[in-house]
Design a protein around this nucleic acid. Structure first.
Lengths: 233, 233
DNA sequence: ATTAAGAATTTGTCCAACAAAAAAGCCGCC
DNA sequence: GGCGGCTTTTTTGTTGGACAAATTCTTAAT
């Protein structure tokens, strides 16, 4: 709209230009002074516009070099999930509800497309998990690695970013809730499912891998609901 | 890091403060001048920091009033998908692969949680679709409405934002590919599945609704693969 | 051809000033 | 007391200039 601020308008124009011309990651944008001349605004306005585009993840401004198109990463997704959890108060189980089918798909595709290199990585993580089953802090860290690696093996960058960013925006308190309060028997059940998931991915049984991941998440959700009922909220 | 720019550091500090204090949407931040004094930097630096946070979707700066915490919306997700499709060249089928399980979950939850009001909306859309089956442009628009409304009925804001933003970042060309090239028989098959999905949601058959949505997407993906094979890329 | 110093380009940061919009305070009127 | 309407104050919007910092380009010497 014509009522929005000049930097916002400039940002839209620059972005439209990038899309129009099919800009590629790494490509250099015109200098701030040149953009300011082109749009007939001050350099400050252009700078704020670029900062906004940088915040949206489209570009990166680097001192002395210029502004360049940024390769796609999960920063935007991380910002979204952080916003949802920390500022908006979206309940954790709502995120898990959305995450579950994506992780199931992740396991399914990983079983179909995994390479031998992926498998080596996955088995290495499982081996380390086996040794860390009584160390909750390390097991949580390895759990993150495992799910990230499975997503990587899925060969789908959107799924990879989704899985990675969602885990990344969880705070320590929530991770604590996920694992540390469990007893030994419950942790071994969790690990058993991790092993099944990887072995089905190894055997390239897509549907079996998907089912194992689904059970894994169903049990995690059940666990969360139970704990919520106990804590009375 | 100490090497990053001052506005970036200020942005991180402000965000950390918002999270720490549990800021709520609509809440007003201190004035730019006050923040500048607090962090001992110029107002320009604070302004760029705020513009970055605005780009990340956390806050909104409004002339004469101040900076306020923004309610969660799908702007970040839209930016991510736009970046992926328009700038990064992520293939369309990769997005569909990620979208499919989310929409299946959306249908499943909608069947479990839909209210009568949701159902009225859904049936209204289906009725309009019935009349527009030969008008590809309008059918595409109604299709978007239908999927959004199903996501709304799922009661999960993450899923709602995901579905809405993914559709929103598709350009005209891609939508064209999705529907306009189909013949009458294919379009009627698509509509038949739309009707089944809604009727299963109406009957609160969660798994049946999920299965119908899954078939819907499988056929769409098959159609895309076929077209790609024909067009030779 | 290599290297190193210097020049040019580009972004980083700050400051000062005024415009524009919104909010807050004030004052008279009913 | 309450309620418009005006003024004042606060806050963001935008510009221009100045200099620092980082990078790249140029050039000259070996």
């Amino acid at each position: 709209m014509s009522t929005s601020s000049i930097p916002a308008q400039i940002a839209d124009l620059i972005l439209a230009d990038l899309i129009q011309t099919g800009a590629k990651p790494g490509q250099l944008l015109p200098a701030e002074a040149r953009l300011a001349a082109k749009f007939v605004v001050s350099r400050s306005a252009v700078r704020e516009a670029l900062k906004q585009l940088a915040g949206q993840g489209y570009v990166e401004v680097v001192n002395g070099r210029g502004t360049l198109v940024r390769p796609l990463d999960d920063a935007q997704l991380t910002a979204y999930f952080t916003h949802a959890l920390a500022l908006q108060g979206v309940p954790f189980h709502a995120l898990m509800e959305a995450r579950k089918p994506v992780e199931v798909q992740s396991a399914r595709l990983a079983a179909q497309r995994r390479t031998d290199e992926h498998l080596v990585e996955l088995r290495g993580i499982i081996r380390r998990m086996q040794r860390s089953i009584s160390n909750a802090e390390e097991y949580v860290s390895l759990d993150r690695e495992l799910h990230n690696q499975i997503a990587l093996a899925s060969g789908n960058i959107i799924i990879t970013h989704f899985v990675h960013s969602l885990r990344g925006s969880l705070n320590e308190q929530t991770l604590h809730l996920l694992y540390r309060r469990r007893n030994r028997q419950q942790l071994e059940r969790v690990h058993q499912l991790h092993e099944i998931i990887v072995s089905e991915i190894a055997a390239q049984n897509a549907e079996a891998a998907a089912r194992a991941m689904e059970i894994h998440f169903s049990e995690a959700l059940t666990f969360l609901v139970e704990r919520k009922a106990i804590s009375g909220r």
